[in-house]
Design a protein around this nucleic acid. Sequence first.
RNA 1: GCGAAAGUGGCGGAAUUGGCAGACGCACCAGACUUAGGAUCUGGCGGGUAAAACCGUGGGGGUUCCAGUCCCCCCUUUCGCACCA
Length: 893
Amino acid sequence: MQGKADGTVPLPTLPATGRGPRTDAHLPRYNPAELEPKWQAIWAEQPDLYAAQHPGCGKPKYYVLEMLPYPSGQLHVGHVRNYAIGDALARHMWMRGYNVLHPMGWDAFGLPAENAALKNNTPPRDWTLANIAAMRRQMERLGLGYDWRREVTTCLPEYYRWNQWFFLKLYEKGLAYRKNSKVNWCPECATVLANEQVVNGCCWRHEETIVEQRELEQWFLRTTRYADELLRDLEKLEGWPEKVRTMQRNWIGRSEGALVDFTVLRPVENVAARRDDGYPVKLNLTETMLPDEDAAPEEAAPRISVFTTRIDTIYGATSLQLAPEHPLVTQFAAEDAELAKKVRDLLQEQKSAREMGELGSLEKNGFETGRFAANPFTGEPIPIWVANYVLMEYGTGAVMSVPAHDERDYEFARKYGLEMKIVVLPRPVNDADGQQKEPLLPYTEEDSLLINSGEYTGMGCGEAQRRMAAYAQEHGFGRASVTYRLKDWGISRQRYWGTPIPMIYCQTDGLVPVPEDQLPVLLPEKIEITQEGGSPLARVPEFARVTCPKCGRIARRETDTMDTFVDSSWYFYRYTDPRNSGAPFNSEVAEYWFPIDQYIGGVEHAILHLIYSRFWTKMMRDLGLVKNGEPAERLFTQGMVIRNGAKMSKSKGNIVSPDEMIARYGADTTRMYALFAAPPDRDLDWQEDGVAGVSRFLARVHRFAIQAIPLASEGRGERLPSDFTGLERRLIRKLHQTIGRLTDEFEGRWHFNTCIAGIMELVNELTGEESAILAGEVRPSVLYSLTRNLVLMLEAFAPYLAAELWALLGEDEALLRAPWPAYDAALAAEDIVQIPVQVNGKLRAVISVPTASEQEHLQTMALKEPKVQAALDGKELVKMILVPGKLVNFVAR
RNA sequence: GCGAAAGUGGCGGAAUUGGCAGACGCACCAGACUUAGGAUCUGGCGGGUAAAACCGUGGGGGUUCCAGUCCCCCCUUUCGCACCA
């Protein structure tokens, strides 16, 4: 997944350790530098190890997926954390007997390759493929269990041809279209950005670069056609974090309301005449001002369409406010030089505010146009203003101003002394004295009643909204309507390193799609990357010049490429059928694997990738390619990895590469530390202080296991005895408590830090009894159970060490195919519990009693404690609270 | 401004349901082994005290036999949205 380009700072170099641990010189020590490459080589010889099985294998399927990385050239520890989470889950699900699909790929198109080409004079393709090779080596070194035979690389023609294929389908369905519009332009990227890629008015890849508005002809995908469904289906995504669902809900921004047309009045002198108080007199429009109904259409009076969520307040509308870019404002300004200057000034002010990043805090500003429009409900003329708080991009670019019942209108009206009409009051409308209430303005509550609203007076707001919209529709000046904040997805990019858009411009035939059998439109490889503006492909004549598929005459190819978010919108379907050359994927196979059971990635894609891919899935469903309209059943957003108080990024210069850590401590330690340092959903401030502890822990496991396993092996295959010794009982109990803990966590909470802590506790218990165990005080069958299950639990977090110990245990089947140990509650149960004893809620003693002790026994034992007696001394015992197995509390006065 | 999440030892964090606050680890201190230690092992480690008492989960209030956990107000940090009509 693409984010900011990566950079790296080296770790401080450390002097070589020289000598290793010496305690048990006769024992082979834990040496990951030797052990891990050995197993890596063995695994490399077993291509089926992590391979997903055929749908007919009889096992339930489990699709676990981490967001694919952009091949920047080097993994950083943020990636490691992400993949360690997914790999732990995948390994666990393998052991639980699932047919696991755990693939990996590369989001390989994008601007950094072009920047690198400029800098190093390397072709983007070579640079990208070299990076992929390097990062794949890092992933393999980390021991991540991916099915590499399903690897997907988005910059290769066998992948991007299907982007083109999809584009043609979208075009056929009217879901891809071309229009001239204002678009976001990042001067740094020298290309257009989608709305989703603009963050605080700046480019998502260049936080400091203000996005400009440019007028360009662009390709768009009709995401808005799915706006309602994208919103509604969020309700079904119960396995997604509420935060992400909320962000998407806000992004889609559905508002229910009504469109109302206000007729613009002719500039008649007497309308401009004012009453003494500055407001226009109420006129009878039918007589004096309404446009001639018999006029030819082109002479008909213009109408201003307004979107409002509060049509019920329309009797309180005292002006119309238009965005400065509104076409009607432009028209008025054309006839009025003074007005034109005011509009220019307002726009200039907005532009500089945007550049300062202060658009949100800009003071409300505006001016009158001198023209009036008729309120269609009252017939009253109201002045038309231009206001900077009205956005051309939202709704119709015009609002009716109801100062008494809207925050912004109120603020604006206060500033300019505009009239306020109260038309809504809290119920009941009259206070105790029978006086009409005086609400605090602006009064915006909708659970209220209308006043001063003609025939609607006395109605509730909701009812008035419905009736007024219906009335407007009957009389042809409005209707109920829904507006979205979501815009269509602009996918044209004036860049080289992306999927060519398969369209042709012919002078005779106009827009002609490239015929399906001519796909892929190959991206030319020989191209000089320069800093010039415009699409680089336009400068490649052999690419741009083409014959029209319809008429055979010379035509011009589309030279823009697609947004790389197209690539990542459907890549997870390709994993199910990665080598298919006749279709993007086989629908039946996809049907087996989908939806993704668990998707894992950073929250930074909550809007971008996760909305696009939901759109794409719904679109594919409508094409009949897939059945389900949602790609992922569950989503997990892991926390960011922070370093020196900032998210890791090249611009902050705080990237940490895992390489040195792997070299010093090994992959198992590196992965395990990434999981141990914090729960996966929380942000993690990367400090290396704790790494040594994890490394020591693994060394201790290793030391214990290589000594215990020879003894344990004698008990292989034997059943556990029914007559445990005290020591055996204690160790087996701890083992099963740990199994229970891990089993629970893998069910969904995923606090792997506590899982690892749990395994550490078990190992502490075992090494605490090391001499007794090695002296044979634990019978082989018990020791076998302890060591074997310990190894199974380590598999998800430290697969190299687990593999080594598994082999020592004499197992030859893959560890991943071994069943996850069954938790036995009886074995995990304590027979003696420590019960805290409180007096008036304060801890006074802890007593050890058999788990199933009677109440009287507990009370007797508790009262025997000297400190309890002291605390109760001279007081009357009021009652005793007894929580079985938990505590005893004496309440005394 | 609006919305969400978070705030616990020197540090990362634990306490899943209102029930022993600080699991596990880091750092630190002491000891053992050692020519040596950034290795290993043993012990200690919230504050306070000679030991207790007592105090302690951002601050203030509340509910309760019992509150890190529930309720109200406030503060701080992070994230998201920010004129959305």
